[in-house]
Every structure is written in structure tokens, then in C-alpha cells.
Write a protein that binds this DNA or RNA. Structure first.
Lengths: 151, 151
DNA sequence: GTAGTTATCTGCATTGATGCAGATATTAGA
DNA sequence: TCTAATATCTGCATCAATGCAGATAACTAC
């Protein structure tokens, strides 16, 4: 809670909490469980992955991952493509970001767009520079969590 | 996927995906399911809530919400406090952000701290100004999703 | 070609989160 | 006080996601 404090770490903390809340709410609004939403975002962020890599990222067994891919495919979000180089492998490709996800995230995109639009060009440049670097930082941190779990 | 493009909307999109991924991964790393993690973040962000308000935010029935609070209380994350003004009501207060959550988020905090530290004072001021405004934008967007579900 | 390994899939069982319906306690109103 | 409404809790049943173990198919090395 906390009244609006100028303490940078508190500001940042609130920012993180707000994003987590919205992530989970938008998954639910899109009709997806956390695992499915995670997988879709992963595919969107890193491109096609094999079933095995998906299992590693999600922490599921390969069996459960098969079912995960089944669900996503059934929903039309994803398609299976056999790897021509190794036909045992199944590449999972994002077909299209589901419309329900777009609709769920639309409000946030609009509000954030309005916030960003209020800054001047140089400030916007700073923000987008940050977004790019922060995305990589998050990705690396997520990978660290994944590895810690396996290790 | 996309190669690193300068397109602002693509940058922002990747940033959002990366954050969603990390949110979900950190929940799992903290040993919490999505609902429980959502509730903890909500309490952290907005302060104590009644059981009923928690039900509204999570979209659970009141019965399921009772069980949610049970789990959080059992884990020592939260405590029930009777509202003296209306003794039917149960206020749910955050006891302490669980250590497992801290540990899960630590990597991201460190990496993001390093990213932010590279900017000059005025740029940092811009970033923190943004964080504050964005947090509110996310909160409002989350509330919109909640209301859309109920309405 | 045979053996061994790897990647994915399937059948079956389990479990945890949830909904639902009714119970209980408290408050508000006539 | 009696009644209705509200807030939370409990018992029971259900369902979806997952783990596990074994099956299948494909690749690799000899």
C-alpha cells in the first residue's frame, strides 16, 4: 500500500506488483491458464520452440507438455511442425496472438500509450531504450529461474 | 521473435511479453499458484482487503476465496483480522512478503537495477516518473478487466 | 542391420483448486 | 423483536492440469 512515496525502490516495487497483477488478470481475461499464457508469451518472445524446450521452460514433464501443446493447438493459437532435420522433433509455432489476448491487453496498451505520449521526444527515447534493455534483463532473469529449478 | 527492431510498438510488445513471462516464472519459483500470487500482489499494492473484495478481484466465489485465504494464512503470508465496525467482515492483511518471493524476484531486481544505474540523473528521473504513472495505468487496466468479467 | 539413445506421445491415476448449496453469524430495518 | 439482507465459512462433488510409466518413432554409432 503505502502513500505515494518518492522512494525509488518503493516506486519500482509498486510498478512490479502492478504489472504482475495485470499479467495474471489478462491471462484470466483471455481465458487461458497461467501455463498456457506463459507458453504463448514465450513463443511470441523467442520464436518457435521444440516440445522439449517448451518442457524445459515451463518445468512440465514431456507428457504434460504434449497436453499443453494439444490445448494450444486446439485453440488455434499454435501449430505443430515437424523438424525436417530431425523428424522426432516437433516445432511449435505461434499461429497468431489470440484475439482474446489482444482484447485483454488493449486497455493497458491504451493507457500506457497515453502515459508515454505525454513525454517529449528525448524522454521517449530514454523510455524505449529502457524497454529494450529491461526486456533482455527480464528474459535473462526468467532463464535463471528456470535453470535454478532444474539444477 | 523478430530481429531487434527499432519499431517502438515492437519494442514495447517484447517488453510486455518478457514481463509476463517473468511474472509467471517467479510465481512458480516462489511456490505459489497464479491465484495466490495475484492475491499477495494485490494486498501488497492496495493494502488490506476484505474477503469479499478479494473475491471480486480474483473472480472466485466466496467459498473459494475462503480457501484461498486459508492457504495464504497457513503459509504465514497473511492474517485474518475481524473488522471491528462490522464483525461479519474479515480483513486480510499481508504479514510479510514471503522470502521465497523475494528470492524469486531478486535476479530481476538486480539486473534491472544495473540497467537503470547506467542512466544519468535526469534520465532516471524520467524513468521513475514513468514507473509511477505506469503502475497506476496497470492498476486501472486490471480493475477494468475485473469489472468487465463481472458486468 | 542391431543396439542404444532421444523426442514425443498415450493411458491411467492423482491432486489441488474451484463451484455450488446450504449453514452460521452479524447487521439493518420495519 | 422479527425479518430480511449481508459476509463468511463448510461439506461435498467435479474437473482440469499434471506426473508417471510405458509405448512408439526416429536418429546415431558400431
Amino acid at each position: 500500500m503505502s502513500t505515494e512515496s518518492a522512494d525509488p525502490s518503493a516506486v519500482f516495487r509498486r510498478y512490479l506488483s502492478a504489472m504482475v497483477l495485470h499479467s495474471l488478470a489478462s491471462a484470466e481475461a483471455a481465458g487461458l491458464n497461467a501455463t498456457d499464457y506463459f507458453a504463448l508469451n514465450l513463443l511470441d518472445l523467442t520464436g518457435p520452440q521444440t516440445s522439449g524446450e517448451l518442457a524445459r521452460w515451463t518445468g512440465l514433464t514431456t507428457g504434460a507438455t504434449t497436453r499443453l501443446i494439444d490445448r494450444l493447438e486446439e485453440g488455434g493459437h499454435v501449430r505443430r511442425v515437424l523438424d525436417p532435420a530431425d523428424r522426432r522433433k516437433v516445432m511449435v509455432e505461434l499461429v497468431a496472438p489470440p484475439a482474446t489476448v489482444d482484447r485483454a491487453v488493449e486497455g493497458a496498451r491504451r493507457r500506457l500509450g497515453a502515459v508515454i505520449a505525454e513525454y517529449g521526444p528525448r524522454q521517449q527515447a530514454t523510455l524505449f531504450d529502457y524497454f529494450g534493455r529491461a526486456a533482455e534483463a527480464y528474459r535473462a532473469s526468467t532463464e535463471e529461474l528456470v535453470e535454478r529449478r532444474d539444477g
